[in-house]
Design a binder for these strands. Structure first.
Lengths: 207, 207
DNA sequence: AAATTGTTTGACCAATTGGTCAGGAAGACG
DNA sequence: CGTCTTCCTGACCAATTGGTCAAACAATTT
């Protein structure tokens, strides 16, 4: 398949269809657990036709991963060192939880990959992701130094934001088994909880 | 294989060897991704011999899961409604993080299972786990009502403890890629962070 | 030592899986 | 229209996988 730019109308449509189907299958079965037959069936295409658009199962997977990583990091990128510290962090929490609500499959795709040791995305994590985190950790540290928020390790703070928000996508079935919510109502409760929780934890100590 | 009690010396040893090997393989590859050949090779046994002790791949997996779930919930069981509220919760956080350090494979085994929709453990989650959580959430709610800790949704508080502590086992590779720690040193930092974090968040409001 | 029971394995099997290929169907284009 | 390229498929293949089985081998019991 054409590795470069030019794509016909049909190519654009079918590649999109395949990636959408692959997201479905990979996110719920993991790379090894997903089969080309499943992906093809979900996409409504024949298996050879899927392989006409992507050279291999792995090619579909890695394309998905690299396409989605950027989107995934956008909420953190938006955190603005010039804004109000507490608002910026709480807004980040909000955006991240919103992504768990809107893109749970994407979250699970990454979760699957990382739990299994990130064999096909380690470069991206040790590279761009790490750099972004380093940068934003610097911003948070400065806010701490200026007394705008409590003094807390910024890296572990970021981890705790990832963990608490992605939990609602990755462990959705567990959350639902325990809360038995109607639809997504519990995510509003989660947002209230997290706002209160991070708000309290970040409130600066009196001098 | 004998489904009942009586086991010979050799049976005990080999079943244990197989389960240990299976934990290794299942936790890093997921159910579908793991193969009997891998498990047999890791255990140092032949594949038919593995199947002499367990009737199928699935039998190994479900036995592992149900064996480990109890251990997994022990830290929460220990949380004592009669103890000092803040201490009890912080001790729970500590025990849970300790489990991420000591039993990361077990954590990843559950993570894999639950991310993929918990197809073979849903009963356990909707049953015993849910009941335990309901009970402990009641305890926490009471502490809130008595003004001993801040007023926060107890279910989401428990989720946040799970999420933040298990993160260090399940997303270990990501944490390491970002922090580049020597050995497990970062887990001590994580403990300091989480103690400060939960301590601040739970501190009751002045009346 | 013989008989019985428990353990191990090589050889094998059917199903699944990722991937190939020759050729046909359908668009694009002059 | 005819030609050229793109798109699609049935049939096929080799490798892998979960699982079986008869027979050999080792322990234990009598």
């Amino acid at each position: 398949m054409n590795a470069g730019q030019s794509r016909t109308r049909i190519q654009k449509k079918n590649r999109e269809t395949i990636l959408e189907a692959a997201l479905d299958v990979f996110s719920s079965e993991g790379f090894r657990g997903a089969t080309l037959d499943q992906i093809a069936a979900t996409a409504g295409l024949s298996k050879p036709n899927v392989l006409y658009y992507f050279s291999s199962k792995e090619a579909i997977y890695t394309e998905l991963l690299s396409m989605l990583l950027d989107t995934w990091l956008d909420p953190l990128r938006e955190m603005d060192g010039a804004g109000d510290p507490l608002d910026e962090i709480l807004d980040y929490v909000k955006r991240k939880l919103q992504m768990s609500r809107d893109f749970p499959r994407e979250s699970r795709l990454f979760a699957n990959e990382i739990v299994q040791g990130a064999p096909r995305i380690l470069d991206q994590i040790a590279g761009p992701l790490r750099e972004l985190v380093d940068e934003k950790a610097g911003v948070i540290r400065q806010w701490s130094d200026e007394g705008k928020i409590a003094v807390l390790d910024p890296y572990h703070l970021i981890f705790s934001i990832w963990a608490t928000t992605q939990h609602y996508a990755d462990f959705d079935i567990q959350v639902r088994s325990i809360l038995r919510p109607e639809g997504d109502a519990h995510l509003d409760d989660a947002m209230d909880f997290l706002a209160g929780f991070f708000g309290r934890a970040l409130r600066p100590d009196p001098d």
